[in-house]
Design a protein around this nucleic acid. Structure first.
Length: 818
RNA sequence: GCGAGGAUGGCGGAAUUGGUAGACGCGCUGGUUUUAGGUACCAGUACCAUCGGUGUGGGGGUUCGAGUCCCCCUCCUCGUACCA
């Protein structure tokens, strides 16, 4: 009945049929429960790599399973099409990035289709298309009106090779996330979005993300970095100015013996004007801060400014120092130093001979402040009116005192900075702003959107070609009508990827960014799948953007939710020889080669079988062959379906076979419902295949059981190897196409067994097995064990102290010498 | 330093969450088929030994019973880093 397994022919045939029947489109059909399965859309580099394959095979398995379970599934795909690589390629090939990008999209679409992924292609989007980015521009002008988007002169991260600024999140260990070049601090006027206004909500809502890996939640919590404490205002001697600091330990306020400011702090700069030595030191600090990779080994250095601060409570005068460990980018760029209770301040004080005053004592026991700083909470000493208070109470009391005297207040500090969204690059969405000499930065009105990026420009490296594009540059001021110039920076590409999941719900909507009714049906994403490398970047921005869209009135939280992704699966990397596959290492495996040699189904099967989804996957050519071998083995099972029976029906064997079939259904279903352990689900199906192979389908019952097993296998393999499953289903003459078949439900009757095998332990050690009626009691089981020859010898001459029966599992007999 | 996760055969990994450790696959060994290689198939494969014993990084503990729970230690991976 079967012939040879010819993957190429089978896959071509089914891909064509699926395309013709349009079976993968999400329907506007509310009779079925909607399910939104999303994979992180790719950057169209032109070539699919194994990481994509893994990501998309996982997503496809989920989407196909949910369809078979009767859900109305939305499983879209598109292209994160703006970005730097397109510009670099354009420079190299001397062709505009648009051309390169669209050609790559065409190429990658073919590759995705070749894998047999069940996307709703009618919803395909490309972020570089004006129909897409116009809404991002529209949103930005709303944010400007609300004051949530603003332009500011600030010290920002600049990457020279990329010729653009970077967001904080794009600087990893002091180097550019893309090209690994150390970033430079530069003062530039840039566009920001006030993500810090949403810090509290972004933090609080993390608690609702029970379907996210704790690791990712933790990373985001860490990144937002909330800390509570006080803002304290110190006076500056001989000046009306104040030196403001943030501290989490207001209880140690009476222990302040000096102040420390960052090299970039105005006070430091002011002091340097009349102090060349200090100026030199500040210069040194500014160089080190970005280049020094291992901060751990960096020596604490400082220099006195000559300024003195006035303690807000005691009125005492304390010196102000510049210290290289104080960061300008956090808090106010200045700290109060309490060497007795902070290790950094302690080290610094020791090095420069500054005084140390203990103001907190341990609740019980002593502490030798000469030896080390005491950083725990305790009881206040040497603190005047606050003496005797516990740290927690003292915090409140001191904050109250400061507030009453206008010297400070309670304050919450976040590590999160506002999102820098402007980029000095060409291949991105234009920032919809017109700069007018009289009116300032004016948002482009809705009726002039989109601001279309000219697609025929040729970047040459260096500055963006937009800066020389006269036709783009000039525009009339929307407010006063005078000649003005357009903003020439473009958006960070994370802007596009921050809302694409919502756009998929109404991708061709020409009236609005999203359609509230469509959001109601589909959002939030039920299952999002992608790499963990986006834990703080994309996933934080997307959460933020979702809330911005909600607050812009595009949907209510009842319609689209407060969070964009209900469940998140972060897949592991694909490795070869223990390291990440990359072109520079020359250890890549081309998916195309695997597909050509073994077929898409084998590639899919291997990537899902070789490791649990969230773990790294070590590529192994022999393993791929093993996957292919399995498919061939299943294929051969077809030969014996409905074959002439030889011999009589073996009722016990048939019962066992059916039991195996139905426990497999339970096991595979469990994998889909709990954690997507597809490696285990596939292993279970391999076991079923092995059992079928060993089974002798004699008699009508035997034949029926064998056919049932092969059909169940065809159906349950469909989410993993859909072409193979469809072909099998067709050869079996199944009524439904395998990928559209109803997901099987285990027959409880088939799971029942009259007799069970019980493991018998003596003293907790396995000594044998007995076969016994399924409802046998403890006495019966014990009697059977005692009658068993192999077990009996362990009981001989022993007195039974205790017997434990775990129904259906084991019998443990505890004995002692008689 | 801090935070999280992990350590199971030669390898990737299972183990219904306290109940037969090593499912499934790879690799390996032997055999069958084959002119040969590959493919395919059959048998074996944690370790040591003859009964039997030992085994889930190391050490202790709880329990009739521990890979799983508790305490201590070692190592590895990931994240993060002078955050005041």
């Amino acid at each position: 009945m079967s012939g040879r397994y010819e993957a190429q022919n089978i896959e071509a045939k089914w891909q064509q049929r699926w395309a013709e029947s349009d079976m993968d489109s999400a329907l506007n059909d509310d009779s079925r429960e909607p399910y939104y399965c999303l994979v992180m859309f790719p950057y169209p580099s032109g070539n699919l790599h194994m990481g994509h394959v893994r990501n998309y095979c996982l997503g496809d398995a989920v989407a196909r399973y949910k369809r078979m379970k009767g859900y109305n599934v939305l499983h879209p795909i598109g292209w994160d099409a703006f970005g730097l690589p397109a510009e670099n390629a354009a420079i190299k090939h001397n062709r505009p990035p648009a051309e390169w990008t669209y050609a790559n999209i065409d190429q990658m679409r073919v590759q995705l289709k070749r894998l047999g992924l069940s996307y709703d292609w009618s919803r395909e989007i490309a972020t570089c298309h004006p129909d897409y980015y116009r809404w991002e521009q529209w949103m930005f002008t709303r944010l400007m009106q609300k004051g949530l988007a603003y332009q500011q002169d600030a010290e920002v991260n600049w990457c020279d090779p990329c010729h653009t600024v970077l967001a904080n999140e794009q600087v990893v260990d002091g180097v550019c996330w893309r090209c690994d070049t150390p970033v430079i601090r530069k003062n530039l006027k840039q566009w920001f979005i006030r993500i810090t206004d949403y810090a509290e909500e972004l933090l609080a809502d993390l608690d609702s993300l029970s379907g996210w890996p704790e690791k990712v939640v933790g990373m985001q919590r860490n990144w937002i970095g909330k800390s509570t404490g006080a803002e304290v205002s110190f006076g500056i001697e001989g000046s009306g100015d104040t030196l403001d600091i943030f501290t989490t330990r207001p209880d140690t306020l009476m222990g302040v013996t000096y102040m420390a400011v960052a090299a970039g702090h105005p006070l430091a700069k002011q002091a340097a004007e009349s102090n060349p030595e200090l100026a030199l030191f500040l210069d040194e600090c500014s160089k080190i801060s970005t280049k020094e990779a291992d901060v751990e080994t960096m020596e604490k250095k400082g220099m006195a400014t000559g300024f003195h601060a006035i303690h807000p409570i005691s009125g005492e005068s304390v010196p102000v120092w510049v210290a290289n460990f104080v960061l300008m980018g956090y808090g106010t760029g200045a700290v109060m130093s309490v060497p007795a209770h902070d290790v950094r301040d302690y080290d610094f004080a020791r090095k420069y001979g500054l005084s140390i005053r203990q103001v907190i004592a341990p609740v019980d026991g002593d502490w030798d402040i000469e030896t080390a700083a005491f950083t725990e909470a305790g009881v206040l000493i040497n603190s005047g009116q606050f003496d005797g208070m516990a740290s927690a109470d003292a915090k409140t009391a001191i904050i109250e005192w400061l507030a009453e005297n206008g010297k400070g207040a309670e304050r919450v500090q976040y590590r999160l900075r506002d999102w820098l969204v402007s980029r000095q690059r060409y291949w991105g969405a234009p920032i919809p702003v017109i700069h007018c000499a009289d009116c300032g930065a004016v948002p482009v009105p809705d009726d002039q959107l989109p601001v279309v990026l000219p697609t025929d420009l040729q970047p040459t490296g260096g500055a963006s070609p937009l800066t020389e594009c006269e036709s783009f540059k000039h525009a009339d001021c929307p407010q006063c009508g005078k000649a003005a110039v357009r903003e020439l920076d473009t958006f960070d590409t994370f802007m596009e990827s921050s809302w694409y999941m919502n756009r998929y719900t109404s991708p061709r909507n020409g009236e609005a960014m999203v359609d509230a009714a469509a959001m109601q049906r589909w959002a939030p994403v039920d299952q999002y799948i992608g790499g963990v490398e986006h834990a703080v970047l994309h996933l934080l921005y997307a959460r933020f953007y979702h809330k911005l869209m909600r607050d812009a009135g595009l949907f209510t939280s009842g319609q689209g939710g407060d969070e964009p992704f209900k469940n998140l699966l972060t897949q592991g990397m694909v490795l070869k020889d223990g390291t990440k596959m990359s072109k520079s290492k020359g250890n890549t495996v081309d998916p195309k080669a695997i597909i050509e040699r073994f077929g898409a189904d084998t590639a899919r099967l291997f990537t899902l079988f070789a490791a649990p989804p969230e773990k790294e996957l070590e590529w192994h050519d022999a393993g791929v062959e093993g996957g292919h071998r399995f498919l061939k083995r299943v294929w051969r099972l077809l030969e014996r379906v409905d074959a002439a029976a030889d011999g009589d029906e073996d009722a016990a064997a048939v019962k066992l076979m059916r039991r195996t079939i139905h426990t497999t259904i339970e096991r595979v279903t469990h994998a889909f419902e709990h954690g997507f352990a597809f490696n285990v689900a596939i292993a279970a199906q391999m076991e079923l295949a092995n059992a079928l192979q060993d089974f002798k389908p004699a008699g009508p019952g035997g034949k029926a059981a064998y056919r049932e097993g092969v059909e169940v296998l065809a159906i349950m393999l469909a989410p993993f190897v859909p072409h193979f499953a469809c072909e099998m289903g067709e050869m079996l003459g199944m009524k439904q196409v395998a990928v559209l078949a109803d997901w099987p439900v285990a027959d409880q009757a088939a799971l029942e067994q009259d007799e069970i095998t019980l493991v018998v332990q003596v003293q907790g050690k396995k000594r044998g097995e007995i076969t016994i009626a399924k409802d046998a009691g403890q006495d019966e089981a014990l009697a059977a064990a005692q009658a068993d020859f192999a077990i009996h010898k362990w009981l001989d001459g022993m007195q039974i102290v205790k017997v434990i029966l775990v129904p259906g599992r084991l019998l443990n007999i505890v004995v002692k010498p008689a």
